[in-house]
Structures are given as structure tokens and as C-alpha cells.
Computed example of a mutant assay.
Amino acid sequence: MNLPTGGWKMPLTVHHHAWFPGRIAGGAALVVAPVVWFAGLLLRHLGFATADFTAEQLTRFDQQPFAAMGQMAAYAGNPALVTAGYACFAVGAILLCPAVITLARIVAARSPKLAYLGGTLLVLGLFSRLYWAGVDQTAFQLIGRLGLEQATQVVLDTYVETSYGPWRVPVTAAFGLYIGTFLLAIGALRSGTFGVGRFVLFLWAGTLWTGVLKESSLLKGVVSSAVLPLVLVPLGVQVLRDVVPELRVERSAGRGRPWSETRGRAADAVPLGTSSAGGAATTTHSPPGTGVVDAFAEPHTCCSPIIRSMSSAVASEDPGSAEYTSMVWWPSGSSMVSPRSTTPHFPTSTRRRSPHGSSRAARLCGRRASTRCRA
């Protein structure tokens, strides 16, 4: 495999406990997603409520087993407002995915099992709403091609099949919306992320209907979605301000190293040699974590645990050194070869010596040579 050469370097900063999607994206999703979600359901309600329907039409809509007829009639009478409502609803479902992931990340610090399972099911359930958003848009487009009456008849004739989806995947995933909301809410309550009030509001918002061309009523739609910003927006502000302890990312400084040095061939990048007469041999190593020390992790390689321990000990005292030299003690008569070579290497180190590496490595390996490093 051809590896890049030149000026590529490892990142200068190590981010411990880094998480996806991150503080900015996760906090912004918690703030924006519930607001857009609420706006979409409000516009859908206004699109139907402000349409010029007669009492006879409203009675006919109420007699239907599904709300599809009323929604298609509302689109025909007020297409811009209804389209805006359905579009905002779809955008809200998309933005709720990173918002739920961020919430689950916070909950997982103290209630991991409920957070993992609840967050996963809830995100999978949100994907089903995107499928239904596509079906809704297709039904609205049929009105311009076939007319309101014929398009409505086509939608009603195929309503069950289109709602369930192929292999009933969307309707099955929709169960994750309710189960995931319940589990994540329990986890948030147990972890202290939510109080009792926010716990109840979150559960109420998660009981919203699912399916194709559903009506957003005043109670089951507008009000139930209006409580979601009360639950998530304050948490999102805290995430953006970086005051949530569960999401703190610790940073440590390091020195970048060229890519060609850190990901080169193990046999060329890490020569290893000893003296056949025993005693000390000067060996040049690269810092741990670069893929070089791992080259000695062969199952039949003598003293590979000591090499790893020694390298970690040296790096802990001088983590900023790009290259360091250490002293390795081997029993008399032993030899060591590179994992990719059958010939022992006897390199002469010309690299700079770490102020801590040699003495610490010698002491460490010297203590263990009698018990773990045998010829």
C-alpha cells in the first residue's frame, strides 16, 4: 500500500473522551431541532384550519377512517402553507437525530444501558418519519397530475400498503419511537438529566402519531410538540456553554510527527539489535501509539512485553520527544531480529537521546530481565 509522504503530521492535540457529534453540533441540534419540529406541526395545523372548508366537507372528513382526504384537500386549497409545514416537520425529524444522540451521550454517563438501547431505537424510529415524508410529498404531487378527486382515491386505495412500506420496515421501525422514548426518558430520570416534570413532558412529546398524511390537531400535534423545546432547549444551551460535566473533553498537547515516520514499514522504521556477547545494546524506538512498537507484538518474540512496558514508561516521562533512545538489556548469547527480517540488526543510533529515557528504561528492563526475558 502506498502511504502518503511529505508534510502530513499527526494531530498536535489529543482529545480524550471526544464524542460524536460534538459540542457545537450536538448543542445546536438540541436547541434548533425541537423548535423546527414544533414549527412544522403548527404550520400543518394552520394549513388545515385556515382552509376554506364547508361544514359538509368537514363532516365528510370526520367520517373517513384516515385523515388523508382532509390533508390532501388542505394542500389543494393552501399548498404553500401545507408544504412549509410538512417540510419543517421533515427537517425537525432529521435534526432530532443528532439531538437524541447528544442526549443519549449525556444519559450514558450514569445510565449507560438505557441510554444505548433507548437512543438507538429512537434514532432508528426517526428514519421511518423520513419515509413517510416521501410518501406525503408523492401524494401531494399526484394532485397536480390527476386532480384532487382522483389523486385522493388513489391514495386511499393504497393507503395501508404505502403506510406499512416495503417488508413493513418503516412501520416496524416506528415502534422504536415509543419504546426508545420511554427507555431514554427513564435513563434521563435515573441519571439526573431530567427532573420529574421534564420526564413527563418528554414522554408526552414522544406519543405523537406516526404514518402517512396525518392531521396535526391542536392537542395531538401543536401542544404536545410545544413542550419538547421546554425539555431540550435548556439542555442544548448548557451543552453549547460547555457546562455539562458528562461531555467534557480533556486535551493534552503533543508533538506532531511526519506521517511517513509514524506509518512506515515496521522493519525499516524500527531496527532492533543486540550484542551477541550480552550486555547493553543501544536501540532506537519511536513513541507508543504510532504503530511501530506494535511490530514487536509477535507471539514468539522474546521480551516483547518488556519492550512495550519500557516504551510506555519512557514515553510517560518524555511524551513530547519525537524520537528517543533507550537502553535494552538482554541475556548473554541472545539475539533479536526485526519481525520482517531474519537477520539481526545492529544499528548505530545518531538520534538525540532523551534526558529520561536511558536510565528509566534500563532500570525497568533490568528488574524484569531475570524473570521474563530468557534466551
Score class of each variant (00 low, 15 high):
D157K: 02
I179W: 08
L213I: 04
Y75F: 15
F140R: 06
Y178S: 02
G289V: 01
V32L: 15
G180N: 12
H15Q: 13
L58M: 12
M336G: 10
P287S: 08
G144T: 01
G7C: 10
L230I: 14
P34E: 02
M69W: 13
A108E: 08
G47N: 01
A76M: 08
A173P: 05
S275C: 08
V91L: 15
S216G: 06
A185M: 09
V314H: 01
A80L: 10
L208D: 12
V249Q: 07
T207G: 15
V292K: 00
S224M: 08
G47A: 04
V231A: 05
A188R: 02
A185K: 04
T193P: 06
L156F: 14
V337G: 06
V100M: 15
V233N: 06
G279K: 01
G22D: 09
R340S: 15
D62Q: 14
L126E: 05
W329G: 03
D294Y: 03
V200W: 06
V171F: 05
A267H: 08
G187K: 03
C88H: 02
L183K: 03
T342H: 08
S128T: 11
L230M: 11
G195R: 05
A99V: 00
M10D: 13
V233S: 07
T342C: 09
G264L: 01
A99I: 00
R129T: 14
T325K: 06
T102C: 05
G197F: 11
S341E: 14
M327E: 12
I306L: 15
